[in-house]
Structure formats: structure tokens, C-alpha cells
């Protein structure tokens, strides 16, 4: 199992070191931080649920596809799950590229894809401890990939032998 999903704070220094290289002229880091306010409410924390095995696989796929782009040299994405207090970071996308345009675009696409494709869900925790799950209408539905949809029966059967 890889370590793109973590419980507890993420070391950004570790991610910078893992992606370092002498060919990169641009480094872009996106960090997602838990806001202490949402509209008119105080927020103590977000509590993230995850399908860990699927999330690890999907994040690795996103990293690989972004890192394969022309001008992108490295991409690393790590998402924190469980209880994340307000003011702390829940996700980092680190991209190193030859030049800044492709690095900026890659980091933006990386976090956009995390929000749309990775099986992670959040629940808002109020200062009094009450909880409010993000409703389904505010998320992005997952769907089978087209080539897997019609052949699902065969591929599932094949993995059980």
C-alpha cells in the first residue's frame, strides 16, 4: 500500500524532497486548508472518510498522468483523512516543471481531479461537536470507466479464480 492517504499532519518538506530535481525551473505547491468559517457558521474541523485502497490507486493514477505531460517533471499528491482541525492542511499537490505555465496548470488540474475522482468524503464538525455531512448534491458522482462498464461481469469473474 502506498502512502498518499494519511492520518495526521503531512510534512510538506518530505514532499519537496521526494520531488526534487535539477531540471525543474518551477515549483508549484497547492495546499488545501480547513477554514474556521463556512458561510455564517463556525467550523471546528472537517472529518474525512475514505475508501483507502481505491483512493490510493486513483491518486497514483492522477500523479502518473500529470507527470507524463510535456514539461512536467514530478507530481506528488497527499490527502489527509480523519479529523482535521480548522487551520490545518488537508491536502497538498506538489508539481515541479521545466517552466511555470505547465506547473501552474498541472497543480490546478491535480487538485481539481482529486476533488472529482478520489473517493473521499467530508463531514463538518461544529465547535459544539455536532456534525453535518456534505450532502450528495454538493459532491461529484463517481462512475465506472466506459471500457469497464459493459465487461464488468467478465472481469469480476476473472479475478475470483
Amino acid at each position: 500500500m502506498t502512502d498518499r492517504i494519511r492520518r495526521g499532519p503531512i510534512s510538506i518538506e518530505e514532499l519537496l524532497q521526494e520531488t526534487s530535481g535539477v531540471d525543474a525551473g518551477a515549483l508549484v505547491v497547492f495546499g488545501g486548508t480547513i477554514r474556521a468559517f463556512d458561510e455564517d457558521r463556525d467550523v471546528a474541523a472537517l472529518d474525512y472518510d475514505v475508501h483507502r485502497e481505491m483512493a490510493e490507486e486513483r491518486i497514483l493514477r492522477i500523479e502518473d498522468e500529470i507527470a507524463a505531460r510535456e514539461g512536467v517533471l514530478a507530481c506528488r499528491i497527499v490527502h489527509r483523512v480523519g479529523y482535521v482541525p480548522a487551520g490545518e492542511d488537508s491536502v497538498y499537490v506538489v508539481v515541479r516543471g521545466r517552466h511555470r505555465p505547465e506547473a501552474f496548470q498541472a497543480a490546478k488540474d491535480g487538485i481539481d481531479r482529486v476533488k472529482q475522482e478520489v473517493p473521499i468524503w467530508k463531514e463538518e464538525v461544529d465547535p459544539d461537536g455536532s456534525r453535518r455531512a456534505f450532502s450528495s448534491e454538493h459532491g461529484t458522482p463517481l462512475a465506472p470507466e466506459p471500457e469497464q462498464d459493459t465487461s464488468a461481469a467478465r472481469s469480476v469473474g476473472g479475478t475470483s479464480s
Partner: peptide, 24 residues
């Protein structure tokens, strides 16, 4: 993996029900 409605269930497979995602 995710599967469409035509996929056949296997008795030994744990099945996940995944609502719209909201990470980040």
C-alpha cells in the same frame, strides 16, 4: 473498480457504496 448495473456480483467480493465525492 467501479461497475455498472449489468455487472454480476461475486459472493466473495466486498461491495462498496460510494456517494458523490467531496475531498479536498
Amino acid at each position: 473498480e467501479l461497475f455498472g448495473d449489468d455487472a454480476v456480483l461475486q459472493a466473495d467480493q466486498e461491495i462498496s457504496l460510494l456517494p458523490p465525492v467531496s475531498g479536498g
